[in-house]
Amino acid sequence: MSKIISTIPGRLAANQTDTWSTGSGGRRRASILDRSLNRAQASEVNLSAFSFLFSEILQYTQNRVDGISDFEQRLNTLGFGIGVRVLELTMWREKGQPRRERRVLNVLYYIHSVVWKSLFGRPAHALEKSTDNEDEYMLIDNEPVASRFVSVPKELSQFNCNAFVAGIIEGVLHGCQCSARVTAHTVPVDGKPLRTIFLIKLSEEAVQREEQISK
């Protein structure tokens, strides 16, 4: 059976869905690569599926590291690659003319709202500037998805699995030429036991660049 594929390049991807799919037993299923990149609504992932995968990632990583800081560093590196890609995807999905953010504050606000919405379905709860240090910002999430089901045992009490999400932030910042070091810290307040602060410490280059742009 032949099928006519649209010859307009821009519409190719959407129309090819049926013809490219491979499936066993005659059942045709479109793979994720055949779907349009713009379909943000249908691309939600089941929370349980994510949690089980994330749990496996943590177990796999834990068996291959020595020490808590190494463990967090590995998770951070894993997140970094995701961050770089998430930036590209969210930019692509932006309505109208996508803008490339240059100013640190704009980039952080972009992470706070757009990136967080695309990853977790809602914006982060707060974005604050450190009063002690000029180059430090804090992104606050009251109910982080990554640590929702994770109970850290006492012997690892220093460990925070949100290092993975911190890595994603680092990746996005890196993609915007604002390299920074991001760490995750759980700071509970009343009624929000999992409240996590992502401490963003900008690199010297990023600070210098920011100064140059502001001139």
Binding site: S48, S51, F52, F54, S55, E56, I57, L58, Q59, Q62, F149, V150, S151, V152, P153, L156, C161, P193
Partner: peptide, 23 residues
């Protein structure tokens, strides 16, 4: 199934020590 099975620090069939499960 939420707070024990999805907890990466839990070994199946072993005694459950998970703060979030208790809570």
């Amino acid at each position: 199934s939420d707070f024990v099975m999805k907890n990466p620090f839990y070994t199946p069939d072993m005694p459950i020590r998970a703060e979030l499960f208790d809570q």
